[in-house]
Amino acid sequence: MKREIPLAITAIFGIFMVAQLFIPHYLVQDISGRLQDWAVVIVAFAYILGVANIIKINSGVICRRGQDWEYKIVMLIALVIMMLSGILLGKDPDDSLPIFDFMYNSMYVPMQSTMFALLAFFIASAAFRAFRARTTEAILLLVTATIVMIGRVSLGEFIWERLPDITEWIMNYPNNAGKRGIKIGASLGAISIGLKVILGIEKSYLGGD
């Protein structure tokens, strides 16, 4: 029963979700709308599991003085302060102590944008590595990348006035040809795996016993 009931539940909900696209009847649409609202709530409950997971794993490291245990303490403190200040004191800066807002602006925002900005260096190092490859595929990738990169800045027009047009043509046609092939293939794969999950052909998420 530990496996059969979840299998049946997956099949019923999966089939219903596919069917509701074709059934405009208000009763069916009403249920499907509700189901999608419920999903949001269930996902929110998973956040409690997330907290439990973080606390369990990191407190384990701290207790046995594992690798970087001091930093795990820092992480748990940051997490607890953020959660408690947000929930107990309110997240609105007007009616609360501004801890939540303060940490958001002075830590969350700058670190998020800096991690994102690191990509400028990583994209350069990735390109450099690709330059050293000597296959036809790598050369095609690099030549196109170089044309598009130069064609998008004013230097491109300075080198050859038609370069921006060529760049635009590459983005509209060859770039889309590859993307389209991937999208069609991937959508077939996605539908097929979705079908197999609903019919229980792929059922490993139900666990071992």
Binding site: I123, A138, L140, L141, M149, N175
Partner: peptide
Amino acid sequence: MISFGASFG
């Protein structure tokens, strides 16, 4: 590969 190169650039 041409498509990837274009997206990369």
